[in-house]
Amino acid sequence: MARRPDEEYDYLFKVVLIGDSGVGKSNLLSRFTRNEFCLESKSTIGVEFATRTLQVEGRTIKAQIWDTAGQERYRAITSAYYRGALGALLVYDVTKPTTFENVSRWLKELRDHADANIVIMLIGNKTDLKHLRAVAVEDAQSFAEREGLSFIETSALEAVNVEKSFQTILGEIYRIISKKSISGGETGPASIKQGETLVVGAQDGNTKKTCCSSS
């Protein structure tokens, strides 16, 4: 079956949005995929999903993003979505120290359920609430360095750094993938070029045929 023009892309990357409840994951997603922000947003029940196709390092990348409910109880459902994800955006709220303190627990969650070489980016959201800031940039920065994560602060409300955060993580994933395809390495999560099979949000980690098959 031929790929329709509106679905043309070089790579398809699955990314998950995780972090405590109320840190702004859903609004980061809506800002990135639809350039919308909703002040009266509902809490996420289960998982939500959105995509956007964009240019990264001269390639057309389709980002397939799963937004998960933040409450701990929901991990029974949401952790299944880490499988096959190439990237994770781990979000905390710069005005709520507990959401930053819980970042380590989320990293453990990823270690337990996600692929070993998943690219992780730490995001401090809600920088627009300047007078309420309670997590210093330096603290988050040094934590990210220690843990080997990239780090950025964003405001989904003011659309600050949202684009950049997604661009950065997709770029990082791309560099890893393209390095792998040159060296021929096939370990860990790998998304493969158009015309072959692509790893998508498969529960069981199987490859999924989007519209083309490798056979």
Partner: peptide
């Protein structure tokens, strides 16, 4: 298409 019911049905029940 690898659709499983948790992708759409969790909130129906919850």
């Amino acid at each position: 298409e690898m659709i499983n019911p948790s992708m759409y049905g969790s909130q129906w029940f919850i």
